[in-house]
Design a protein around this nucleic acid. Structure first.
Lengths: 161, 161
DNA sequence: GGTTGATTCCGCGAATATCGCAGCCGGCCG
DNA sequence: CGGCCGGCTGCGATATTCGCGGAATCAACC
C-alpha cells in the first residue's frame, strides 16, 4: 500500500512542502511524473497533506492545551461537542490520567476565558478541564526521520512590544 | 510587523501549501514577486512553514502527548533536550499544572517504552512526565484558527462518528 | 526644497517546474 | 501466447519560480 519510495517522498515533503517533484525524483531515482503521481495518490488517500503551519505565539495568538476528564457521559459525545468549536484545532481521545485532549487557539485572554467558562466547561460530561497555556513553542516539526535543526531562529522580533 | 496581506497569504497556504505564489497574488491583488518576498520573510521569521503532514493512524504510528514537570533545572534546557529527540514532534513551555508539553510519535509500544523510560525520564530536571496515549483523533484541523471567519473548512479532516 | 536610505512593490527575461498524454515494460492470468 | 493492468518514462506546451533592476513611497535630516 505504502512503499519505501512513498516514505522517501513524504520525508522530503515534511522538511519542505514546496520542494519540486523533479528535485525529489532526482534524489530518489524517480521521474518527476512518477513522484507527482505518487504524491497525488497519497494525498487522495489522506496519508499526507501539504499545509502551511504557523507559530501561534509569534502571531500573537494564545495556544492552550486542554486535558479533559469526562464523567457520566460517553467520551465520544464530548469529543464531538468540542470538535464543533472553531477555536478547537485538535481533539483526541486518550488513555491515561485524562480522557480527552484538545488543542485550542484564541485571540486573547478574554476570548480564552469565554471559551473555557462559557462553552467548554458547560459541555455535558466535562468533569474537569486542565489548561496549559503555551508560553513559547520550542519545536514544531512533523518530521519522523528527524533532520532539520531547531526552528528556534531567534533574532527577528515579530510581535511589536 | 505582520499585516493583513501576510495573513491572507498564510490563510491560503494553510489550505494548500503548494499553491503558486502567482495564484495567491492574483487573489489578493499582489504580484507574484511580492507574495514570494513576503512568504520568504515570514518563513525566515518562523511565523509560517510549509510542511507535509501525515495521518499517524494511516501510517500505523502511535501518537502520545506528554505533560512534564521540571524541577531544579531551567525549563528551557529541558525543552532543548527533548527537542533533540527525533520522535518528539512538538515541544512548548507552558504555564499551568505542568511546565512543558511534548507531542511524540513512535512506531509501536516498544519504541514508546524505550523512549519514555530510557530517554525522556532520564533527562536532567524531568521530575514527572504524564503520558496520554491517543486512541482516536477526532479532529485535526490545519486551518488557520477558525475564529477568524473563513468560509467553510476545506483541508479539515474530521473523523465521522 | 532636496537628498539619502530603507522599504515595498512591480515588470521582465531566463531557468525550472508542472501538467497531460502517449508509449514502454514487466508481471499476471486466462 | 496474447491481452491487460499498473507503474514508469519522455516529451512538448504551459505555468511558475527566481534574480534582477528600477519606480514609488515615506521618514529623517540638512
Amino acid at each position: 500500500m505504502i512503499d519505501d519510495l512513498d516514505r522517501q517522498i513524504i520525508d522530503q515533503l515534511r522538511v519542505d512542502g514546496r520542494r519540486s517533484f523533479g528535485e525529489i525524483g532526482r534524489s530518489i531515482g524517480l521521474s518527476e511524473a512518477s513522484v507527482r503521481a505518487r504524491f497525488g495518490r497519497l494525498q487522495r488517500q489522506g496519508v499526507v497533506q501539504v499545509v502551511g503551519m504557523t507559530d501561534s505565539v509569534k502571531l500573537g495568538e494564545m495556544e492552550v492545551h486542554l486535558a479533559v476528564r469526562v464523567h457520566h457521559m460517553p467520551v465520544a459525545l464530548v469529543a464531538r461537542e468540542l470538535s464543533r468549536m472553531p477555536e478547537v484545532r485538535y481533539v483526541a481521545s486518550c488513555v491515561g490520567p485524562y480522557d480527552l485532549i484538545a488543542d485550542v487557539r484564541c485571540r486573547d485572554l478574554g476570548h480564552l476565558a469565554e471559551l473555557l467558562t462559557e462553552r467548554v466547561r458547560r459541555v455535558n460530561g466535562v468533569a474537569h478541564a486542565e489548561a496549559l497555556t503555551v508560553l513559547e513553542v520550542i519545536k514544531d516539526s512533523y518530521l519522523w526521520a528527524g533532520f532539520r535543526e531547531l526552528p528556534a531562529a531567534p533574532g527577528e522580533r515579530i510581535i511589536p512590544p
